[in-house]
Design a protein around this nucleic acid. Structure first.
Lengths: 148, 148
DNA sequence: TTGCTCCTCACGTCACGTGAGGTGGC
DNA sequence: TTGCTCCTCACGTCACGTGAGGTGGC
C-alpha cells in the first residue's frame, strides 16, 4: 500500500545529479551551515532528501552560477529565502489580521525586487557584451561586401 | 618636446585599477602565461604597460566574469584572440590576394560567432531567471489586490 | 630625503576535487 | 553474496589574498 504521494526519498548522488553538482559540494554546503543538515540521521548514516530540498538547492545554485556569488553572499540570499518561507507559512495560517497579511506581502515584494535588481544588472552587462560582439560581426560582414 | 601621442606608459597598479582587478591577479596571469610578460624588463624591475594592454585585459576579464570561465577556458579564448590579431595584421598588409582576404574574414566571422553563441546562452539563462522572478512578483501583487 | 608604488618569495584562504579505507541498503 | 552508492577523514588544487622584507622612481 502506498500513502498519498509523499516527498520522494532521494540520496545525495541523485540530488546532485538532478541539480547539476556533486555530492561533495552538497556535503560542503551542509558543513558550512548553508544547507540544513539532512534530518533523521546519525553520523555515518546516509543522507536522505526530498523533492523540496532539490528545488531549493537548484534555485540557490542557479543564482550563485548566474550572478557569480560567493558562498558568503549565497548564505545571505538563502537566509532571506528562509525568512520568506516563514512569512509564507504565517500568511496562510489562520487568525492572521489583514493588516499583517498586507505587511507580509510588502516584505515579499521587497525581497523579490532586490533579487530582480541583481539579475537585471547582470542582464544589462551581458546585453552590452552581446551588442559589442554584434557590432564587431557587422564590421566584418561589411568588409566582406566591400571586397566583392 | 612630445612626439605623437604614443601609448601611455602605465604601471601595474594603475592598470589593475582601470580594469577592476588587483596587481596580484595580473602577475598571476603573467606567471601562468595567460598574459605576455610586460616587455623590456629585467627581474625586479617595474612592469610597464600600454593602453592596448589595458584594453585586452579588460575584455578578457569581462568575458571571464560574465561567462564564468576558468583560467584554462580563458586561455583558449585569449589564444583565439591572438590568432585574430595576427589575421587582422595580415589582412591589412600589402600584397594579400583577395581570395586570402576573404578567407581571413570568414575565419573572423567564425570566431565572433562562437563567442556570440556563448554570450547568448548566458543571456537566455539570465532571461529565464528574470522571467521566473517577474512571475513571482506578479503573484504577490495579485494576492495584494485580492486582499483589498 | 621622504612617501608611494613597485618587486619577489611564500604562506593563507576559498570552494571544492580526489583518493583511501570502510560501512550500508536494494 | 555481490555491486553500487554512501560515509568520514584528509590531502590536493585552483585562483587568487595577504603579509614580510626589500628596492626603485617622481
Amino acid at each position: 500500500m502506498m500513502g498519498p504521494t509523499v516527498s520522494q526519498a532521494l540520496r545525495i548522488g541523485e540530488v546532485a545529479k538532478q541539480v547539476g553538482t556533486t555530492p561533495r559540494t552538497i556535503r560542503y554546503y551542509e558543513e558550512l551551515g548553508l544547507l540544513p543538515p539532512a534530518e533523521h540521521r546519525a553520523s555515518g548514516q546516509h543522507r536522505v532528501y526530498g523533492e523540496d530540498d532539490v528545488e531549493r538547492l537548484r534555485e540557490a545554485l542557479q543564482l550563485k552560477e548566474l550572478l557569480g556569488l560567493s558562498l558568503d553572499e549565497l548564505r545571505e540570499l538563502l537566509e532571506a529565502e528562509e525568512a520568506r518561507a516563514a512569512r509564507r507559512e504565517e500568511f496562510w495560517s489562520e487568525g492572521v489580521s489583514p493588516a499583517r497579511r498586507r505587511e507580509i506581502l510588502v516584505q515579499g515584494l521587497d525581497h523579490v525586487d532586490r533579487q530582480l535588481e541583481l539579475v537585471r544588472r547582470r542582464r544589462d552587462d551581458i546585453g552590452a557584451l552581446e551588442r559589442e560582439l554584434e557590432e564587431h560581426r557587422a564590421r566584418i560582414t561589411q568588409r566582406f561586401d566591400e571586397l566583392t
